[in-house]
Design a protein around this nucleic acid. Structure first.
Length: 586
RNA sequence: GCCCCCGUUGUGUAGCGGCCUAGCACGGCGCCCUCUCACGGCGUUAGCGCCGGUUCGAAUCCGGUCGGGGGUACCA
């Protein structure tokens, strides 16, 4: 990897910036920061010795390279199983990362119903783990008790299982780093927090949001967020706050300088920390916040790669600074995960797909009769491509081909039409047996089939499936396609609009003629039925086929749209078919 | 406001300095197939945000600009 190669030491080296000249003008900020330099110069780190924000564009399209042997740059050397491609470069050859098995995680908060953005993130993490023979950890970030719910957690698990994205550690399956629900890890965080408070990396902050806001207005500062007021409180100030019985939040002291990290999908990204305010690690009541808990768990669970949504991009510098602090107080084994930020999944217009958007909900896709492999295939296309001229592929194929460097950083619009088309393609790849099995629960849910399915119905279904397999694009569509075949005659009904349109006087005349043509048939087969109807309606009455068979179709199946008519009548059987032709005349 | 990310047809993407009069797919439109629907086949539509620069040559490299998005919490 180009960007992983060692930098030429001559050009880019720069002095260590010994006295950050008044970068922070906010109160308390001009104090010397704790030394956060990390012994290993590798991955994402505070980089005070680097040239400013000189972005090297990542070379992230290795497929092209394979055909240009001359351009292959160090890549492919580190493709051994268990070794992430991302670990190959010398610049990252810190002991912490070399030779480490890939461990990724997805860490959703159980709030609301699971949405497609989450599934996309889960999919990419899962594919990354599987591609590298690594471990996929499922962790529940439920530190915000007010917003979490058990239903949501259940939904998360259910959806992951439906999608077939299996996890190696996490809820249900457990694992060496259990528990995987953060709400059950309070002691861990309390312990870390206590250590942090003993260090210089944090300070207690007594400010209220209103006070901070008021100070900003007064100062006219352009920088939002916390202003560092409580960084260095005098004893008197401290005493005064305590006398007021204020409870402090624990704040992380952002170091001065700049932080550069090599984003797995975006390349180098640099933040000046003066624009990254000191952030709270725990509430005044002591509850840890996401800001603390996610980095702590990533370290403790030995996560090597964090692939997450772009919305977390700007919180990355604080996490990197915190990783450093945590390493220094002995949390984790000294290695730090690399991060990659996946593009947004957008909804209509230019808005991020929100939970309010009906298109966002995964359960809805399942209930509509999407195939998990279809939805997953579509989701994979949002920011990734398996090849220039192909977009239908299996999960296995994705795993084999998936490379985080191929992920496109642009936000992608969710396009239902395309999702359905991809899903339809997968539907057509299914064997008849498989499709039958998948369609059955939907038929049962709709009351078309009983549970369990009777032997007779099962046979009928088996005969009918070839007629519908290429006619449906979602599993649910089988219901309307087949209900007429299974309903008992007492409950058979016809679509009113279709009846009005096709069973008018002319239509009924056609049905009457059909009844006559077919009632005397000695052999009740598709061919015989077709032959008889064709002769009578088309040849003798001179009707156009589409006009001839439309009314018959509505009479027999109750709908204008159905499986092929003659086959349908054969399946329905002579008696029921004749009865329906008869009843259409009433 | 400030910081960060992103910018190829309507949508998702391919593109890695000449292979590009920009490929594929979805959508749209039209046609064919046809007992309905669907499938399938054929054709068609429309794009490198803009301005400069580097180069013999730029979608591709550089600078700027404009536009979109996100962040700026005692949410995640």
């Amino acid at each position: 990897m180009d960007r992983d190669r060692p930098r030429p030491p001559d050009v880019r080296r720069r002095r260590l910036d010994p006295d950050p000249p008044q970068r922070r003008r906010r109160p308390g900020r001009q104090h010397p920061r704790p030394d956060l330099r990390h012994p290993d110069a590798g991955g994402p780190r505070l980089q005070r010795d680097d040239a400013p924000a000189r972005r090297r564009h990542p070379h992230r399209h290795p497929r092209g390279c394979r055909t240009h042997a001359g351009r292959r740059r160090g890549r492919g050397l580190d493709r051994r199983p268990g070794h992430s491609d991302e670990q190959g470069g010398t610049a990252l050859s810190s002991t912490s990362e070399t030779g480490t098995k890939v461990r990724v995680r997805m860490a959703p908060s159980p709030t609301g119903s699971p949405h497609v953005g989450l599934a996309r993130t889960a999919l990419f993490n899962w594919a990354f783990a599987r591609h590298h023979g690594g471990t996929f950890v499922f962790r529940i970030e439920d530190t915000d008790a007010a917003r979490n719910s058990q239903e949501s957690l259940d939904g998360l698990i259910e959806v992951m299982q439906w999608l077939g994205l299996d996890w190696d550690e996490g809820p249900v399956v457990g694992g060496p780093h259990a528990p995987y629900r953060q709400s059950e890890r309070s002691e861990i965080y309390a312990d870390v927090l206590a250590k942090l408070r003993e260090s210089k990396f944090t300070y207690d902050c007594y400010c209220t949001t209103e006070e901070v806001e008021a100070r900003r207005k007064a100062s006219g500062s352009k920088v939002m967020g916390y202003d560092g007021f409580c960084r260095e409180l005098s004893d008197e100030q401290l005493a005064a706050f305590r006398a007021e019985d204020r409870k402090p939040v624990v704040r992380f002291r952002m170091p001065d300088g700049e932080i550069t990290f090599d984003d797995l999908v975006r390349g180098d990204i640099t933040f000046q920390t003066e624009f990254v305010p000191d952030f709270a690690l725990a509430r005044a009541n002591g509850d840890p916040l996401y800001t603390l808990v996610a980095p702590v768990d990533d370290l403790l669970m030995e996560i090597t790669h964090v692939l997450r949504g772009e919305d977390l991009l700007s919180s990355t510098p604080r996490q990197i600074a915190l990783y450093d602090a945590l390493a220094q107080i002995g949390v984790g084994n000294g290695s730090v995960p690399r991060v990659g930020h996946l593009p947004y999944v957008m909804g209509e217009g230019n808005k991020k797909l929100s939970k309010r958007d009906p298109q966002a909900h995964l359960m809805a896709y399942r209930d509509q009769g999407f195939l998990p492999e279809g939805l997953l295939n579509y989701l994979a296309l949002l920011g990734w491509a398996i090849a220039a001229d192909r977009d239908i592929f299996s999960l296995d194929e994705m795993v084999a081909a998936f490379d985080i460097k191929d992920v496109n950083p642009n936000p992608a619009r969710f396009d239902l039409k395309k999702a359905e088309a991809i899903n339809a393609a997968h539907l057509r790849r299914l064997s008849l047996d498989d499709l039958t099995a998948r369609v059955t629960p939907f038929l049962q849910a709709a009351g078309v089939l009983t549970t369990p399915v009777s032997v007779a119905d099962a046979q009928l279904l088996e005969q009918a499936m070839p007629l519908v397999s290429e006619r449906i694009n979602k599993l649910t569509e089988a219901v309307e396609m087949l209900d007429w075949l299974f309903v008992d005659e007492d409950h058979f009904t016809r679509d009113e609009a279709d009846v009005a349109k096709l069973l008018d006087d002319d239509g009924r005349a056609v049905v009457r003629a059909s009844y006559d043509a077919v009632s005397g048939l000695t052999e009740w087969s598709t061919a015989a039925i077709q032959d008889a109807l064709q002769k009578r309606l088309v040849d003798e009455l001179g009707l156009k086929p589409r006009n001839a068979f439309g009314p018959v179709r509505v009479a027999v199946t109750g709908r204008r749209v159905s499986p092929p008519l003659f086959e349908s009548m054969e399946l329905l059987g002579r008696e029921r078919s004749l009865a329906r032709l008869q009843s259409a005349l009433a």
